[in-house]
Design a protein around this nucleic acid. Sequence first.
RNA 1: GGGCGGUUAGCUCAAUUGGUAGAGCAACUCGUUUACACCGAGUAGGUUGCAGGUUCAAGUCCUGCACCGCCCACCA
Length: 789
Amino acid sequence: MLKATLSPPFLHRISPIVSPIISRANPSNSVNLLWKKALFSAIISRMDDKFLKPYDPNTTENEIYNKWEESGFFNPDECIQAGITEKDARPFSIILPPPNVTGNLHMGHAVMLALQDIMIRYNRMSGKRTLWLPGTDHAAIATQSKVEKELYKKEKKTRHDLGRDEFIARVEAFAKESHDTIVNQIKKIGASVDWSREAFTLDENRSLAVRTAFKNMYDDGLIYRGSRIVNWDPKMQTTVSDDEIEWKEEKATFYYLKYGPFTIGTARPETKFGDKYVVMHPDDSRYKEYTHGQTLEVEWINGLITATVIKDEAVDMEFGTGVMTITPWHDATDFDIAERHKLDKEQIIDFKGKLLPIAEEFEGIHISKARPEIVKKLEEKGLLERVDENYTHRIATNSRGNGVIEPQIKEQWFVDVNKEFRGTTLKKEMRDAVEGGKITIIPDHFKKTYFHWIDNLRDWCISRQIWYGHRIPVWYKGSEVYVGVEEPGGDGWKQDLDTLDTWFSSGLWTFSTLGWPFDYGHSAELSRSPQGKPIFDDTQGKPVPGSDLDVYHPTAVLETGYDILFFWVARMILMSSYHLDDIPFKTVYLHGLVRDEKGQKMSKSLGNVIDPLDMTEKYGADATRLSLIIGATAGTDVKLSEDKVRGYKHFSNKLWNITRFVLSNTEGLDSTSQPPLTKEDTKILEESNTFAKEVTEAIERFQLHLAGEKLYQYVWHTFADKIIEESKPILEGDDEKAKKSRQYTLYTILVLNIKLLHPFTPFVTEEIWSSLPHHKENMLLVEKWPVDA
RNA sequence: GGGCGGUUAGCUCAAUUGGUAGAGCAACUCGUUUACACCGAGUAGGUUGCAGGUUCAAGUCCUGCACCGCCCACCA
């Protein structure tokens, strides 16, 4: 076994490449003692036998992760206590986008974890006060619908059969199980998250944050209750937000119906019973003889009705006949027209999708079955003029449960995005944060997409009729309404049955995880506020000094997939602007989607899913990480094949063998003293220095794919293929001076590369590090980065 | 309908913001069994989608076009 140790003064001497580790060692702490002990043995002894075998990730990765975790150094407080990080070091924080507790992690999560871990490890090594806070998301509707599906499949029961409490218990059990799986998977990837600060979007602390947020916004008039047209999923019996809708194309028949003197077109005759408004464009010369507000008697499905002519610019003159009738209760466009002209709205379809009494003999029939019968009646009455069979109809479905959406008018809770508060609006705040450059989006062009979305933003419907989630903190007693953080005193209060959109709680994520609106006693020894005391000072409008919220917010980076830019990123900006009057993060890094080798989305039905856990088991976490990083620029989708992962396993092994070569050829080298260097070696060291700077710059610029590729190139094709190959004759030759110089150089470059590679391939580098003579006692995880930023 | 990307070697993708187009797979030739066959040395492969423009200089900037993909949207 090796017993040698590289001394800090030696590191000083060579160059800034390998920076002075000792400068960070606080004389009063134990780390320094390790160094003192280490200084006595600086001679490289015989190589560890494990290098005679190929590198095997499976035998090392779990053990290494445990050691990291046991060290406590994932927690920045511990790093400060151990003297590894300066007390006043600049903070660098990332709050992990919480995976949904709906099952397993997929490759998209693996990309996210790999990218963030690189940033975190780099910054930790660079001496920053680095926090990566993990957590999971209850994902309300997604989780509930998954459990509902299983419940029906296994027991043929619905949630109503179980009742609210029993059902919630089932969901919670499922969520717990998913959570444990996910935590395990996060560890497998090697993510250096601070588990001591782990959060859940539905735990006690986050619930308090949600209720506080709701109350504050309600008091400012930013949350209101109103009757509006919403996306109703009759299957799941809940509303769904606009963003959760997935449009599907369907071949359908388009019907032309006689409506008095007009011909109207529709794909949905079954909704037309109550249609008593006939709408046309004011500029349409074909209908100039009809005036706005004019009434006429029309023979319709169930007899004569009085129709009113409405002129509105929403009508497309080119489409169909340029005339339509409207169903305001069940169509968003129609609803808007009705609102503009103050028209009656009548419900035709109930919340279960069945026709109401207005349909007369069709009452109680589900709309999915009513169409042919109604068409038959229309035909018999001579109201059906013609049909177009080649029509593609777009239907709205719930992306979470696949139910067909039936728009309905319903009383719901909304966030008003245009309401003024403190001289601004939520919409304006969201725009300004990015437009004014306070937040940088990578890649840059997503700014345009973001603005486009903001400009078209409507009030956000936040209430859901599902059971799993944050209960709306509103209580009713007769006509009284109470909105508060805690339940009101006194008898007879009933809480609102609805729950909140899952994005409401995730919107608070960057600060609810950091203790807002209260501190829960993290690291009290580091002059935090005492447990339970507010950490946000409303009178000053800023966090109490020294609290997690004060130190780590705004977070440095939000790294996530571009597909949730609107769902989540925008909403975090909204919430942070309002509640903290601050941005939630300085940089948004958006990664692409992981697709299969043909560029198709990975899905169970296509059977092309590559499971990250499979990959880490077969090829190791390091190889899996590299395969996801290299060749993946920000915002661009990554094509992944098993071959690619396999390829990077070779890299780990190559590094392993480089180490074997260097150690077996430097036996006896006194690493504490630098020998006189040959010209070639001086040049090699200078070049490696330049290379290290390039890698550092690439990481600083968030060009992680470039940094990874450079490392790969250098290690394999410069270090191994050129430097090591050229070393062979020198090492076997008689020139002792050249030999010593080269041994020293090889060793130095090995150490340099192990450090630079650590954020990318943490396991194999840590494993090698543990076998290097000099560093046995000190983990690579907290080694100093070899280049000063 | 509106918006955003992409088009570079056979395949997958880079190119540090205008300065001699690169890498990994794949192919071909040769070598190598004591660091690594999970290896090495080399070869071949490009009018950077098309057409113009700006510039000493364009894959990169501008204009137009053609495909491919994605997002948003109230054609009933």
